[in-house]
Design a protein around this nucleic acid. Structure first.
Lengths: 323, 323
DNA sequence: GAGCCTATCTGTCTAGGACAAACAAGGATC
DNA sequence: GATCCTTGTTTGTCCTAGACAGATAGGCTC
């Protein structure tokens, strides 16, 4: 790839705060990696502050993905970029945190024909083609199939393509926007034509630090299809406000979405806080690709989006049994 | 207000990371406030780590509001809670950052009947009522009137209500989600039924640090109504990627949205960087309520959303003149 | 008033040290 | 061979304290 910035010389180095935002690696961690492993090795500006060149930032993004997939920082942080790429390529569960919960192997076909078409539209920067393909998929699969099965696969494929450098960030943004548009339209249609709404009342949101809204939207679609009364607060609601909202809306279920982006520690801590603050009779359902999302007391782990229908049915049975 | 958390005995003290998440105040800032102003004054756990009692966290939330409204930290951080409440109550622009740019007083009727209905629905936590009112407004005003005039007024009214403590954050989130849903539906309808798309090709996004997407969506609606070919990348696209995307999509216009949330410095620096990286023949149009958004070389300042039609017409005239 | 200039304010960066929680590996037991 | 416990290592987050650049306020002059 020839550098399109050759005219304006080079992509500008980033400050430590910018890298934290961009890669999701805390400042403290960046500094301690530098001290312990010798990478990253940022330049310094006139005021002795770190300046991370673009290639090191790219390497950090690879690292984040590897570590999220189970590699240990000490083993991989100092590795050169090409070895990291090899590891990424081999990322169909090489170390993968010794199989923990038994059934973790939801088969996601990363390279289906649909994914190829999506990636092709992105490569061509063709928003219209992307949109119409997504809309077509929605029609072909139905909202349940689209949000429950195809969507997660596409998101995974796009994320993987980005991680191996096949997509730029702006292409991922374009995908996210088009996907959001298609899904929101469909959800709007379900809400407009839907029959009477039934319990459980579901409140959807993500914790602070989790900016990814697609999972939330797909979950909303699944709940809406089951006839649940859904209220979504969008992303990044403070824990205290989630608890307040749960009371205000008399929510039966609090549905939280966790992408790979959020730190495992943040997720656990936030869930624990939330469980303490939310009404005891409100169930907390947590789902998503976040690797650190293990069983937590008082929190129901959603296996995958397609399983939401079953979870709702189970809730209704148990609610009926209590009355 | 009786403490809604009284049932669970007492709210547990929070770690510094939890406070950062909850209040949005960085850890560094919390420590330096403590050092400089004597507040907050957290307890310490067995390991000498800070533990913030719930009342101090509540006070920090008040502080955040006051500072966002223009108060200076040094003046208010050390103030006792009741004085903070007095200040909050008096928050109909008391200090309010001395009026700056001359033509800043776009008359926004903050308390129209529509705003009152929206605030009422939010107070009742009635998502359905909110949604149907917004949808009704859309029908009554048309998409142009909704996105260009009514929407900004509603957003302003909701923001003001939050600033004076009349709304919780989760209520603002609910508004944002419903508003987004209604608007996206309408944009989808325009795109589906719209005639042939004409220049300019418009690429919409926000800079990193600007998480607010409503302005972007309203702008997209206005451009779509003018028949422009729109591509939205959503929020927080890195500057370098905006420039890449501008080339990839052969954009004629780069439309950036700035809410009050983003720092004036960030906005200026980002715009300058972007102007340097983007193709010279791509115009940059910047709009929004950000106070620091002054005239900048090579950047066209959008006065308001309703004026976008005129801006597009002007662009087309000038483009036609060149051919 | 409008513009400029200086002093204060304020957030973010720097450094290295410490430690608890998470983890891997080895050893003992069933 | 599988499960459990113990030990040693890894790793992220918190700590202190100092420095400084950019923004703001207040006084000055025009």
């Amino acid at each position: 790839m020839t550098d399109i910035f050759s005219s304006s010389d080079l992509p500008p180095p980033m400050s430590i705060a910018a890298v934290e935002r961009d890669c999701g690696i805390p400042k403290d961690t960046l500094r301690i990696w530098e001290r312990r492993y010798g990478f990253p090795a940022p330049l310094r500006d006139a005021n002795d502050e770190r300046l991370y060149p673009a290639d090191q930032v790219a390497r950090l993004r690879l690292l984040r993905r590897l570590i999220a997939a189970g590699h240990r920082p000490g083993k991989v942080v100092a590795l050169p970029a090409d070895e990291l790429l090899d590891l990424i390529r081999g990322l169909e569960r090489p170390p993968a945190r010794r199989a923990r919960a038994g059934a973790d192997s939801a088969v996601i076909p990363e390279r289906s024909a649909d994914a190829a078409e999506v990636l092709g539209a992105l490569a061509a920067h063709d928003a219209e083609r992307l949109r119409s393909h997504l809309a077509g998929l929605l029609l072909r699969e139905g909202l349940g199939g689209f949000a429950g099965r195809v969507g997660p696969g596409l998101i995974h494929a796009v994320g993987a393509a980005w991680a191996r450098g096949a997509l730029e960030i702006h292409q991922e943004h374009l995908f996210t926007d088009q996907f959001t548009g298609v899904l929101r339209n469909a959800i709007g249609a379900v809400a407009a034509t839907g029959g009477p709404q039934m319990p459980p009342r579901v409140l959807l949101t993500t914790l602070p630090g989790e900016p990814h809204g697609l999972g939330l939207l797909m979950a909303e679609a699944m709940f809406a299809l089951e006839g649940c009364a859904c209220v979504s607060l969008g992303v990044q609601t403070p824990v205290r406000d989630i608890a307040l909202a749960a009371r205000a809306h008399r929510a039966d279920v609090l549905a939280l979405s966790f992408s790979e982006a959020i730190g495992a520690g943040l997720a656990r801590a936030g869930l624990a806080d939330l469980r303490a603050l939310a009404p005891a009779d409100t169930e907390i359902w947590a789902g998503g690709a976040c690797p650190g999302l293990r069983d937590q007391p008082g929190v129901h782990r959603l296996r995958d989006l397609a399983g939401i229908a079953g979870d709702v049915a189970r809730w209704r049975q148990s609610a009926a049994a209590q009355n």
